[in-house]
Amino acid sequence: MTDWIGILKEQTANGDQMGREVPKMLANPDIDEAQVKTLFSALEKQAEFAEKLRLALEKFGHDFPIIKAAERLEERYADLAASAAEKLQALRK
């Protein structure tokens, strides 16, 4: 049986770390367009994974606080991806 709660805890810890690191990366004046594209792609994949995790948690009937935590994780990655997209646009100007 899959430990969905364990996966959520692990992914939340990773999301917290990315929440600290991504803004620093994007603020680095030496970051280039290719690096931002790669970062954006990785964040989008994480957001998609968090969405699938939330759907699995819902499917298996986990409590609302667990579902809410998965939603927050999904939103965090989506917000980080949006920040990377904004940086990419700024680099292209």
Results as ranks from 00 to 15, higher is better:
Glu58Trp: 06
Ile31Asn: 06
Val36Ile: 07
Gln46Gly: 06
Pro29Asp: 12
Ser41Cys: 02
Phe60Trp: 10
Arg54Tyr: 03
Leu55Lys: 06
Lys59Tyr: 13
Ala69Gly: 09
Ala56Asp: 15
Glu33Gly: 00
Lys37Phe: 07
Ala69Ile: 05
Ala70Arg: 01
Lys45Met: 14
Lys52Glu: 13
Asp30Phe: 06
Glu51Trp: 00
Gln46Val: 00
Pro29Arg: 06
Ala56His: 04
Lys68Trp: 03
Glu44His: 05
Glu44Gln: 14
Glu44Phe: 00
Ile67Asn: 08
Gln46Thr: 05
Glu51Met: 07
Asp63Gln: 12
Ala34Arg: 12
Lys52Pro: 00
Lys37Cys: 05
Arg54Thr: 08
Phe60Ala: 10
Leu39Glu: 14
Ala42Val: 02
Glu58Ala: 07
Ser41Tyr: 08
Ala42Leu: 11
Arg54Cys: 03
Glu44Trp: 00
Glu44Met: 04
Asp63Phe: 10
Leu53Lys: 02
Ala47Leu: 04
Glu33Ile: 11
Leu55Gln: 15
Ala42Cys: 04
Ala70Leu: 01
Lys59Phe: 14
Ile31Phe: 01
Ala47Val: 03
Pro65Lys: 07
Asp63Ser: 12
Gln46Phe: 04
Phe64Leu: 15
Pro29Phe: 01
Pro29Ile: 04
Phe60Gln: 13
Ile66Pro: 07
Ile67Gln: 10
Asp32Cys: 01
Gln35Lys: 08
Ala34Ser: 09
Arg54Met: 02
Ser41Trp: 01
Lys45Leu: 09
Ala47Cys: 05
Glu58Pro: 01
Asp63Cys: 06
Ala69Asn: 11
Ala70Ile: 05
His62Ser: 07
His62Asp: 14
Ala50Lys: 05
Ala50Trp: 01
His62Trp: 09
Lys59Ala: 13
Ala42Asp: 15
Ala42Phe: 06
Glu51Ala: 12
Pro65Ser: 13
Glu58His: 04
Asp30Thr: 11
Lys37His: 13
Ala34Val: 03
Ala56Val: 14
Asp32Ser: 01
Lys52Val: 06
Thr38His: 05
Ala56Glu: 15
Gly61Lys: 08
Asp30Gln: 13
Leu43Asn: 11
Asp32Ala: 01
Gly61Met: 06
Ala69Met: 11
Gly61Thr: 11
Ile67Gly: 09
Leu39Ile: 08
Gln46Leu: 07
Lys37Arg: 15
Ala50Pro: 10
Glu51Arg: 09
Glu51Cys: 00
Ala56Gln: 13
Glu44Ser: 02
Ala69Arg: 10
Leu53Trp: 07
Phe64Pro: 14
Ile31Arg: 04
Ile66Ser: 14
Ala69Glu: 15
Ile66Met: 12
Ala47Gly: 08
Phe40Met: 13
Ile31Asp: 12
Pro29Asn: 02
